[in-house]
Design a protein around this nucleic acid. Sequence first.
DNA 1: CAATCATTTCGACATAATTCGAAATAACAC
DNA 2: GTGTTATTTCGAATTATGTCGAAATGATTG
Lengths: 114, 114
Amino acid sequence: MKMESPLPLDLTRAASAFAALGSEQRLAVLRTLVRAGPDGLSIGDLGGRTGVTGSTLTHHVKILATAGLVTQARHGRSIICAAVAFDEVQDLANFLLTECCADSVSPDKDCPNG
Amino acid sequence: MKMESPLPLDLTRAASAFAALGSEQRLAVLRTLVRAGPDGLSIGDLGGRTGVTGSTLTHHVKILATAGLVTQARHGRSIICAAVAFDEVQDLANFLLTECCADSVSPDKDCPNG
DNA sequence: CAATCATTTCGACATAATTCGAAATAACAC
DNA sequence: GTGTTATTTCGAATTATGTCGAAATGATTG
């Protein structure tokens, strides 16, 4: 599998990362991986815990991996998936909010930019 | 327009909020509104700044509003849209990350739960 | 090498999302 | 009222996504 280097977030990449989170099954999968912590889970275990069948899970995990939210590594005959969501989610939040009120004359009281 | 009260985030709501962010056009629209700050922009201005046509914009803004990321209010003959993304994005990040490592024996160094 | 277990690819189908233009609605000015 | 501007609804076409099972690939054990 091709491993993407963590390119800077542009609109296209940010949107597809959000889209990766925008499916109940994928969000459930990712949360299961977040719960599992850095040791991760195999595809099979993930299927067991989420009730998602094999080929569908492969499909969803690939989307999460492309979005940079999950890593995959072969370990024996299993593929171990692990969430790398922490920084990524922070980056996504920043992408959305950093330029807050840049065009405004009356900034929001909650605006991080004053 | 029916105004949704801010229900607690469950999997379904979180996924549809992420999905709302998961389109380039909608993400561009929301960022434009974030830049515009609390005064917001009319649908027409939004269209002007993003290049999205009227009926499509109506469609996208409705999705953002349903996700709780944008408010709409009539002002004269315009509809003023404003981002309310700050808390919402924080909630979404929390939804994803709060139970981090709950199932793990070797928590991540970056894990917010130690 | 044969058997087995884990995952992926493939092909197919159903459902949902995106996008547009034209017509409809809503608010205002006169 | 008529006319003007702003937005929404509608209908339709295109494209994308989600889902599955069966067959194919890869890794390990004996």
